[in-house]
Nucleic acid binder design. Structure first.
Lengths: 253, 253
DNA sequence: ATGTCTTTGTGAACGCGTGCACAAAGATGG
DNA sequence: CCATCTTTGTGCACGCGTTCACAAAGACAT
C-alpha cells in the first residue's frame, strides 16, 4: 500500500507477504515480553492471544520464515526473538534523522522506543536558526543547511519527517537526494518519491476521521434500533452499545 | 484490520468497504485544498493524482457514495467536500479526550489538525497530580480521577491514549466503561476491548521496523547486484550489508 | 517400542481489494 | 439535431490475505 514497490512481479519482498511483515513487530514485542519473564517456550495459541491475532494466521506467518516450531511443544522464545529480529533487520543499527523539531518532533526525539531496538537518532534537524545548537532529548538540533552532510556522513537511510505540511515535500526531496531510501512521514501531506523509496505515513487526523465514520455509523444504527423498538431498547445479542447518553457499555474482562 | 467488527455479515459498514473509508479522508484533504483555491470542478484523474491513488480506484470509491460526478466534466468540488464530510460524520462535533499528557500527549494537544475539522479537545487527562491545573495548549490538565465524570458530562465517545504502555489497558478499560466507543491508541500495546468498540493504533516503532525490513532487503539486493556487476557500483551505501550470515536471497532484475 | 496426546505446518476455499477496459452519459461545437 | 469528444461508472478478472480443518510430527508416558 504505502510501499514504493520496485514494480517487480508482485508485492512479496522475498516470499514474505507484506501483511506478514507488518505483523512481525507485533510478535516480536510480545515475545520480548515473554523473554523478560524468562518464559522458555510458547504455543501459537498463547502468542497469538498476546499479539491480538488469530493463531492460524500466526502459524502461517511464521511458516514464511521457516519451520521454527516444535510440534507438540511450541516455539522457543529466545530463538524466535532472534529469528524475527534478524528478519526485520534489527540486528544492525539504523541511524535515523528527525526533521522538524516542533512539538511532535521533540516528542519523537524523546520517545524511548527508538534506541531500544536497532534505531539510533543520529541527528535532529530544524529549519529555524533559533533552534540550532539547542539540545532536545540530549541531542543538539542542527540547522537544515546541514541536512545533506548529516545524511551522507552518518550513512542515514531512514528519515522521519515531522515538519509542517508545506515543508514536507521539499524536505523529502532533499532527504532522498542525499541518499535516504525510507521515510516515515508525520506531516499531513501525500509525499511523492522516486521508485525504490519507501514511504509510510502516520496521520492523526485521518485516523480520527475513520473513527468518526464508524462512530457515526454506530450512532445511526442505535437510533434506528431505538426507532424500531421505542419501548424495548433492543439489546438481545452481541451488538454494539450506546455511544453517548445511552446505557454505559459493558465492562471488559 | 483494527476494526472491532460487530461480527455481522462481512466487513462493510453499510455498503462502503473499509478500504474506501480509509481513503475518504485523503480525498477530503485534497478537495479542501482545491476548494481553498476556488477550483470549481475536478476530474477523477486530477483528484487521484493529488491524493496519490489510482483514478479507477477513486471512481470506484466514489461510486459507493453515489453518483456525484458529471460525465464529461468531473466532480463539483464543493459538493463533494460536503458529501464526504457528511459521510465521515464530520458535520457534527466530536468531543475528544486525550489521556496521558507527556511529550506526545502535549504534542497532540497542540496539533492544529484537531479543531480544524469536526474534532474538539474536550479535556486533557493525566495521572500525575503535579500536572493538574497546568494548562497545555490552553487547556488545563485534569486529574485521572475525573475521567469518568469528564467522559460522561461531555458525551465523549472518542478517546486518545498517549500514556506509557503499562497504563494503556487500565485507562482503556476505564474509558470504555465510561462510555467511550472509539479509541486511538499511541501506546505500544495491544488493547483488548469489548465488541462494538473500535480501536486504531499508531505505533512509531512498528512503522520503523517495517521500514527497516524493506531497507535491509534493498541493501541485500544492492549487494547482490554489486556482486553480479562489480564495476557498476551504484551509490556508495555505507552502513549495511547482511548482518545475517544468511544468503541474501535475490531475484533477478 | 508403542500408543496417546499436543501442537505445528499447510492445502484449499473464500472473500476483499485492485485495476483494466469499455459502454453509457452528458457536454460541446457545428 | 447530430456528431464528436471527454469523463464517469462499473463488469470482470486476478491476486493477496484470511481462515478452516486436518494430516504429519514430535513429546511423553507406560
Amino acid at each position: 500500500m504505502a510501499t514504493g514497490r520496485t514494480h517487480r512481479p508482485a508485492s512479496r519482498s522475498r516470499g514474505i507477504p507484506e501483511a506478514t511483515v507488518a505483523r512481525l513487530p507485533l510478535y516480536l514485542r510480545a515475545l520480548t515480553g515473554l523473554s523478560e519473564r524468562s518464559v522458555p517456550t510458547v504455543s501459537s495459541e498463547e502468542l497469538a492471544a498476546a499479539a491480538g491475532v488469530n493463531s492460524a494466521k500466526l502459524r502461517k506467518d511464521f511458516s514464511y520464515l521457516g519451520s521454527y516450531g516444535t510440534r507438540g511443544v511450541g516455539y522457543d522464545v529466545e530463538y524466535l526473538v532472534y529469528q524475527i529480529s534478524r528478519e526485520l533487520g534489527l540486528t544492525q543499527d539504523w541511524p535515523v534523522v528527525i526533521v522538524g523539531i516542533g512539538n511532535l518532533g521533540a516528542a519523537l526525539a524523546n520517545y524511548g522506543g527508538f534506541a531500544s531496538r536497532g534505531f539510533r537518532v543520529a541527528a535532529l534537524i530544524d529549519a529555524d536558526p533559533a533552534m540550532a545548537g539547542k539540545p532536545v532529548a540530549g541531542i543538539p538540533v542542527q540547522h537544515a543547511d546541514e541536512l545533506e552532510k548529516i545524511v551522507s556522513d552518518n550513512g542515514v537511510s531512514i528519515g522521519v519527517i515531522a515538519t509542517p505540511a508545506g515543508a514536507a515535500q521539499p524536505v523529502c526531496d532533499r532527504l532522498v537526494a542525499a541518499g535516504v531510501t525510507s521515510i516515515l512521514n508525520f506531516a499531513p501531506t501525500v509525499l511523492t518519491v522516486p521508485d525504490g523509496v519507501d514511504v509510510r505515513k502516520v496521520d492523526l487526523s485521518i485516523e480520527l476521521q475513520i473513527l468518526a465514520f464508524h462512530e457515526q455509523r454506530k450512532a445511526g444504527e442505535e437510533a434506528a434500533n431505538q426507532a424500531a423498538h421505542p419501548t424495548a431498547a433492543r439489546r438481545d445479542d452481541s451488538a454494539e452499545q450506546g455511544p453517548d447518553g445511552d446505557v454505559p457499555a459493558v465492562m471488559p474482562a
